[in-house]
């Protein structure tokens, strides 16, 4: 597949928009359909497309195995840390009301950070799974 010019050109055109759309889904998730799970999967799918068309080795140069491994852990840790921040600010675990002066702002901040954690983990895991399977082939 790596030598098909139609696929290469179309993938080059589409991948930036797929990644941008993933970020839109991520940060617009409070107001419309979307959130960390969907955005992570779409972001992962965009880079999986890159890996399919340009080869897994090229894709692994963009997101190296080390970055992916760190990403998998950082997402969960970010989620858990937001919970601990609630305790540190005299609240309860995963209660976002205390994160800002105003409970509603605190909820906004908490949801944003938690969804970001979900996004990082889901996107990294999806890419990892694909690269692990595809890297086995050659």
């Amino acid at each position: 597949m790596t030598h098909n010019p139609v696929l290469r050109v179309m993938a080059k055109l589409m991948i930036p928009f797929i990644l941008l759309f993933a970020l839109y889904v991520q940060f617009h998730g409070d107001f419309g359909p979307g959130g960390g799970f969907q955005a992570g999967v779409i972001f992962g799918a965009g880079l999986i497309l890159y890996g399919l068309v340009f080869g897994v080795e090229t894709a692994l140069k963009v997101f190296s195995p080390t970055i992916l491994r760190i990403g998998i852990a950082v997402g969960v840790l970010l989620y858990a840390t937001v919970g601990l921040a609630g305790i540190a600010l005299n609240g309860k675990y995963l209660n976002y009301n205390v994160l800002a002066h105003d409970p509603v702002h605190g909820q906004h901040l908490g949801i944003l950070l938690v969804e970001l954690g979900v996004f990082i983990t889901v996107a990294s895991v999806m890419m990892t799974i694909f690269f692990a399977f595809a890297g086995r082939k050659s």
Binding site: G35, F37, G40, V122, M126, I129, F133
Partner: peptide, 16 residues
């Protein structure tokens, strides 16, 4: 919503 993403992760584990 969460079950779907967990589902693909566990299916990938099974396929591995």
């Amino acid at each position: 919503l969460t079950a779907i993403v967990v589902g693909v992760a566990t299916a990938a584990l099974g396929l591995a």
